[in-house]
């Protein structure tokens, strides 16, 4: 059910990026899709009643505590890769917004149909 809500969020972002005619709205749609994908990947690695993948001093006291940590830690691999994806999304956001700003300076509008009309 939570996965389905994530997918619904992705579809809302896709709708926004496909249907809307405002350039900033398209960027907003792409951002919504990024959130949905990041959330879905983290949810795949979650365990019911799990602990964060950080080894504490209390986990090292005995072998049983360490085994308990191994069997209850959430998945560190999607967390590491989503960390990468979040930082890259900031860079791509800066690139998209700078394209929007330059287009606005040249044409005076964010509307993509107006831009096409002015080009002839």
């Amino acid at each position: 059910m939570l996965y389905a809500l994530c997918f619904l969020l992705f579809m809302i972002g896709l709708y926004c990026a496909v249907v809307k005619k405002n350039m900033v709205k398209i960027v907003v749609g792409i951002l919504i899709m990024e959130y949905a994908v990041n959330l879905f990947l983290i949810m795949l690695g979650y365990r019911q009643g799990g602990v964060a993948p950080i080894i504490d001093k209390s986990h090292l006291e005995s072998q049983a505590a360490l085994n308990n940590f191994v069997s209850s830690s959430v998945d560190p691999l999607p967390q590491a890769l989503v960390l990468t994806a979040i930082v890259i999304s900031l860079g791509s956001l800066a690139l998209m917004i700078s394209i929007c700003i330059r287009t606005y300076e040249k044409y005076g509008t964010f509307d993509i149909t107006e831009i096409r009309r002015l080009r002839g």
Partner: peptide
């Protein structure tokens, strides 16, 4: 979801 590193990065970003 027990992912504190990503939560911190998400706030900054």
């Amino acid at each position: 979801l027990r992912a504190p590193d990503i939560a911190i990065t998400q706030i900054v970003v």
